[in-house]
Amino acid sequence: MTEKTLGSRPEIEVRGLYKSFGDNEVLRGIDLEINQGEVVCVIGPSGSGKSTLLRCVNLLEEPTKGQVFVGGTELTDPDVDIDAVRRRIGMVFQQFNLFPHLTVTENLSLPQRRVLRRDKATAAKVAAENLERVGLSEKASAYPASLSGGQQQRVAIARALAMGPEVMLFDEPTSALDPELVGDVLAVMRMLANEGMTMMVVTHEMTFAREVADRVVFMDGGVIVEDGTPDQVIGSPQHERTRHFLSRLLDPAMAEVEEETSDQVGKGD
């Protein structure tokens, strides 16, 4: 593992976070800090609340209780300019969510122009640079529908990067992809990690977590069960729930049929 110089101040800080959908308590007291330049992978069974936690970090979900800080700004402050904070937080979705009525270049330049008020030439230049970073310069004038899933996801990453974020959030970025397309997206994410981007990644890609993450967080039932280096959490998990999850994940065929876990929380997606 490459040693990185990590900033001391936490870029993302979550304190006592609770989130309920109606009677369904999805997050029950989350405390988490992610330092500048750190790459943290959040793993856990579906319904464990990991996606909800990620979406709380840029307030796409409104927390029921608790605080979220990004770059020192409290997002949960009712008077915060949430749009201004979100400009510093890039988000990549499982379903890509490119704007289908715009070309690839327009997908990258329209947000810059409308949100950051960059002029046309600057926006186009930044768009081209970021498309090159994800290796898709030749698709600049294509529409998203004509791209493969892996290409769409790389464009989505480039779109987020074009806004110049300090933090990137990834919500299962490879889960909707055909297996042979996963590698390209992970390669881009690896590049970002090497460049020192602060990243919070909800994922099922254990190899990626093991090789790229500085820390792995295992969630189950709306709480953080385990939090440590990849070697600790994936290599030698301390908790039975973590071991159980990892064994099922690494060898799905061997998992014995068992009774439903007591509380299936969250809207698994």
Partner: peptide, 12 residues
Amino acid sequence: GQMEAARSLGFS
């Protein structure tokens, strides 16, 4: 997801 993507990019 379109609204979510736009909001996450900082659109009001």
